[in-house]
């Protein structure tokens, strides 16, 4: 698929701030399932800072915005060609060993209920079957419903509520996977919500579980599937905060309000030149 992304994030400060520093994880991952056709990130009135590919293979880019400033706009525009690899993250270069993703964070710590949920994988043979069983169990246990959870909701809290959004699904799946001894991590990216009216946001998140023999495999409990050609992967982390596409700090007393709009559309088929 050829997917076109237009993603605008606007920070409004009620009082001008002295300056803003951001670190972005906003570049599509380099792996066999996706190829960047064009991609640009612009930040209003900003200076480009350090650029680095981290150990998890994510492209990080720092930005500095000199104040006083009241509005900061981050705009991501681009087109990515994707293919369906059934969730397998093939051809992705990274240095962090999978075992590092067995560590809990407050957002993904397993309580008794999550441990109970992990038992859903009993009887499943082999890590891939376990992973599928767990993803299915999480999808059953947490119904998609926006507005009931917020950014700081933990996996345990979301399971107790029985409702949540893609972030909660991903956190819960990570928690139960780690209980089952499978390394698991949070992935942020974009999703092309197709014509059948699937309601899930275009700014999306899912989980990757490490399956010996296959490597990292994505699972999206929110949509009960593995990432395919509709998905664009940006980066990963222990949890949502660690994998956030934008992390920033503003200097000054100003209170911050956030406005986000994301559209992912299928680009018009383009004629490829043949050689």
């Amino acid at each position: 698929m050829l997917l076109t992304v237009d993603h605008v994030t606007r920070y409004h400060y009620d009082q001008p701030v002295r300056g803003v520093v951001q670190s972005h994880r906003l570049t599509p991952s380099a792996f066999d399932g996706q190829r960047v056709v064009s991609w640009s990130v612009t930040v209003s009135d900003a200076t480009k800072g350090a650029q680095v590919r981290d150990g998890a293979g994510d492209a990080l880019q720092s930005w500095t915005i000199k104040g006083p400033v009241s509005v900061v706009e981050v705009r991501v525009q681009g087109t990515v060609e994707t293919i369906d690899l059934a969730g397998v993250l093939r051809g992705h270069r990274e240095s962090v060993p999978p075992d590092a993703y067995l560590r809990d964070t407050p957002a993904t710590a397993a309580d008794l209920a999550l441990r109970g949920l992990a038992a859903a994988a009993k009887g499943a043979e082999g890590p891939l079957a376990v992973a599928h069983a767990l993803a299915g169990a999480v999808a059953e246990a947490i119904v998609y419903r926006p507005g009931v959870t917020e950014a700081r909701t933990t996996a345990a809290e979301a399971l107790a509520l029985g409702e949540g959004v893609c972030q909660d699904h991903a956190h819960a799946l990570i928690a139960v996977a780690r209980v089952a001894g499978l390394p698991a991590r949070y992935v942020s990216g974009y999703l092309f919500a197709d014509q059948d009216g699937a309601p899930h946001e275009a700014a999306h998140a899912w989980a990757e579980l490490y399956v010996a023999g296959l490597g990292w495999v994505g699972f999206d409990p929110a949509n009960r599937c593995c990432p395919d050609a509709r998905y664009i992967r940006l980066g990963s982390g222990y949890d949502a905060q660690d994998a956030a596409p934008i992390r920033g700090v503003a200097r000054g007393p100003g209170h911050e309000a956030l406005e986000v709009s994301v559209t992912v559309t299928e680009a018009a088929a383009q004629t490829q030149s043949q050689q």
Partner: peptide, 12 residues
């Protein structure tokens, strides 16, 4: 790798 002091941020 599961040590609290291990920082995956500097792997590689």
């Amino acid at each position: 790798y599961q040590n609290a002091a291990y920082e995956k941020a500097v792997a590689g």
